[in-house]
């Protein structure tokens, strides 16, 4: 598990990871990339995320939190961008072990990011991207979105 400068995640975007054409997940040493195209990939992505988090040693509750966050992010891609990618990576910083989930798409982008981060779930399970919820489930949350270009959400969770 290599060290992971956080900037690199955002700046990796131009030199993007290979976009696989087949449906299988591509495994690069230390990194799993899952193409997202349909709601079946939501289940696949969160299962892979759970597996990776388990090998990293996360406890049962955290495994569910991570899987749930991945589920939300992956579904957003399916619903709003139709196609995208989930990248999962184990990371280490200052002796702490963690997991990074990057959800990226070339979809329409989010016009009003602050608003998307404010409105969340109403108790009637209302609309919205559920981003505040994802934020609550994870330790670090980052979003970059440009209308017409796409969205990248990066979240991290650290093992306590």
């Amino acid at each position: 598990m290599g060290r992971e400068p956080r900037r690199a995640v955002a700046s990796d975007r131009p030199a993007a990871a290979p976009r696989p054409e087949a449906g299988a997940a591509v495994v690069v040493p230390g990194e799993t990339s899952i193409p997202v195209r349909s709601d079946a990939d939501v289940v696949l992505a969160r299962r892979r995320g759970r597996e990776l988090a388990a090998t990293l040693g996360f406890g049962p509750t955290d495994l569910t939190l991570i899987a749930t966050a991945i589920s939300e992010l992956t579904r957003n891609i399916v619903l709003y961008a139709e196609r995208g990618q989930i990248v999962l990576k184990g990371i280490e910083r200052n002796g702490k072990v963690g997991i990074v989930v990057v959800a990226r798409d070339d979809g329409p982008g989010i016009p009003n990011v602050p608003q998307a981060l404010e409105s969340g779930f109403s108790t009637s399970g209302g609309l919205g991207l559920g981003l505040p919820g994802v934020r609550r489930l994870t330790d670090e949350f980052d979003i970059v979105s440009e209308v017409g270009r796409g969205t990248t959400v990066t979240v991290k969770k650290w093992k306590r």
Binding site: P5, R6, R7, S11, E140, D142
Partner: peptide, 16 residues
């Protein structure tokens, strides 16, 4: 090397 403070959280990357 890019500046080491993260824009959102201001946290610093520990240089290794």
């Amino acid at each position: 090397r890019p500046p080491s403070a993260h824009p959102r959280t201001g946290r610093r990357v520990a240089e290794s």
